[in-house]
Design a protein around this nucleic acid. Structure first.
Lengths: 201, 201
DNA sequence: GGGCACCCCTGACACTTGTCACGACGAGGT
DNA sequence: ACCTCGTCGTGACAAGTGTCAGGGGTGCCC
């Protein structure tokens, strides 16, 4: 019996996936949570063999949760299961010690397969996504550029960002300019969009 | 037997939902599609009693698909099932003739319930969302303001928008200014964010 | 017909942004 | 010690943006 822990903020898909996995006679869903913060606690409780984590969740990110989980329960293997096949997500998932990466565009059987393979010690990665990840490369953004971009994401002005980060407005503009250049964008909004698509957020 | 058609771009959740629904002994999933454009054709083929449509899909929108479906097969009832409980979505879904509106945050049983209720002629709407929808009110944006905002969404400059819509730059700026005022924003980016949150896109 | 709302345009103004050149500091590697 | 890189800052300039006051056009409704 493979013991599985599910983490996804959308109760409906979480429940549906639990049902699908539960139908397999070598898989047992031993826990479900709806936020990244609950993952480690639930895992300590349920002692799963495999944890299936969504990336976008309230509270802690699925990728952060993966890292925490690896640290707390090294025996528990992690699969990241996400809506968006962002190249950067894959890279960060691997860095966080995940053993598998599945996109929700794939058919459900692939998820079941992934659970089995990961449990048996293999790694599971979408080949197309892996190729794209290599092609896109790692993020060229420096830490500060990322901060500034993230702060500007929801439409703040330079002054807002400067205040939030305790920086001079000129510095913010410089960082933004650099980020715009590196992303090949022409506007800060475009730079945000590109960076998000690539998972450089 | 209630015949159900599923439309969702994410194969994994589509498949999982199909499994969950199929387990009920009064429900039968008679078709699945992954884009809005295929909905009507599939419905003609499968003759479902209830169609379950996601909002965000490649090609035609779930809301547009709902309207088309109502026109083509008036006997088929429609449930909109979406990730985001945007107030504007609910309003548009109702305008498109949908009989139900379910958010994916809700537990799976609620989906099954919704299918049964809708099939028996009732309407199903999340009460909290309905309240929010009434509170937020209808979109104050004029058609053109919406167009301009949508065009500016991905970070285009005024010049880009003007070219795309065959307008003068001054006109674009005026529309943007009006939209910014109506949304209570201070930046075009903020206006886009607010409008999207409210479902005014 | 007279409002009214929407659409399109113009021109002008203040302000914000994006870019560039430049200097200074500290951390890291050779 | 040297160089590189990231970080923070300044100052200045061109371009883009947001706002305002106008004007003209259409279609709708009382």
């Amino acid at each position: 019996m493979i013991r599985v822990l599910l983490a996804d903020d959308q109760a409906m898909v979480r429940g549906a996936l639990a049902t699908v996995l539960g139908l397999e006679n070598d898989i047992e869903v031993v826990g479900q949570v709806g936020s990244g913060d609950e993952v480690v606690a639930a895992a300590r409780e349920a002692k799963p063999d495999v944890a299936l984590l969504d990336v976008q969740m309230p509270g802690k990110d699925g990728l952060e949760a993966a890292a925490d989980l690896r640290a707390a329960l090294p025996s528990c293997r992690v699969i990241i299961c996400t809506t968006f096949g962002r190249p950067g997500y894959l890279a960060r998932a691997m860095a966080a010690g995940a053993a598998g990466f599945v996109v929700k565009d794939a058919p459900p059987e692939q998820l079941v397969e992934a659970v089995r393979r990961v449990h048996s010690g293999l790694r599971v990665v979408d080949p197309a996504l892996a190729a794209e990840s290599l092609a896109t490369g790692a993020s060229p953004l420096t830490g500060r550029e990322r901060d500034v971009l993230r702060e500007a994401k929801d439409g703040s002005t330079v002054a807002d960002v400067a205040r939030a980060l305790h920086l001079s407005e000129g510095t913010v503009r410089n960082h933004l300019s650099a980020a715009i250049g590196k992303t090949g964008a022409r506007t800060r909004a475009e730079a945000v969009r590109v960076s998000e698509e690539r998972g450089w957020l």
